[in-house]
Amino acid sequence: MAIKFDKKPGLVIYLTAGDPDLATTRDIAIAAIDNGADVIELGVPFSDPLADGPVIQRASERAVAKGTRLTDVLGIAKEIRAARPEAGLILFSYLNPVVRMGMKEFAAKAAEAGADGVLLTDMIVEEAGEYLEAMQANKLAPVFLAAPTSPDVRLKAIAENSKGFVYAISRVGITGTQSSLTSDASEIVGRLKRFTTLPIAVGFGVSNAEHVKAVGEFADAAVIGSAIVQLIEKTEPKEAAAAVGRFVAGLRA
């Protein structure tokens, strides 16, 4: 139960919880861990995912339509934690479901479920007072996003307020697959390293083994999201865990 990246580069795998269904998400997470994922980012589906591209939008829409709630996501987090005590586990959400539950209650339940940390897509450091208190009170790692557009003064604040790792956004844009990484990715990691010794994970558009290898040359870990969510979308639910397992195993090949 910790965020650590033993092998280089580390692998962070994002899943939209409840797509295709909660039990399958749990099984996929376990398969991903067994095939080399260091950290699972368990995404809480939201009706209005404005930082996400079409792939994760569609997954969120399917999961919301199935009635997936934050409480349900906390439930499978607990199951994943019980099944794989050593893996890193992050809850990934837009702010509103968390606000609706209540920040304190959410943090307590996330800790109880065995999560290591939390990433809130639309939470910036300036607004994070209550959030950081709740994280600290429950020994959870707040992970903030750092963007290529963030000036150094912001990167410094982001690095200083993050725990576990810092999530560097590889490019200016929303989530989604792409054919090659831009120079923004190494540039932002280089700037972030001046402010922190925490591991730096690079995500957005990291889609295949070639990208993972490239990320490994300048960062500690790669985050793979849309490519996995797309694979799940194309695969029969009962085959999804095995398919994701094979895909994750191939990422460090």
């Binding site: 404005l50 930082a51 702010l95 897509t121 639309d122 939470m123 910036i124 450091v125 300036e126 607004e127 994070a128 007072g129 209550e130 950081l132 903030f144 996003l145 750092a146 963007a147 290529p148 557009t149 963030s150 000036p151 912001r154 604040a157 982001i158 307020n161 956004i169 200016v172 844009g173």
Partner: peptide
């Protein structure tokens, strides 16, 4: 950081966006 006074109207308002937009 503490809760910011960024464009607050009482407790409402603020700035809740992806980091990419902050600059």
């Amino acid at each position: 950081p503490v809760r910011s006074a960024l464009g607050r109207f009482g407790v409402y308002g603020g700035r809740y966006v992806p980091e990419t937009l902050m600059a």
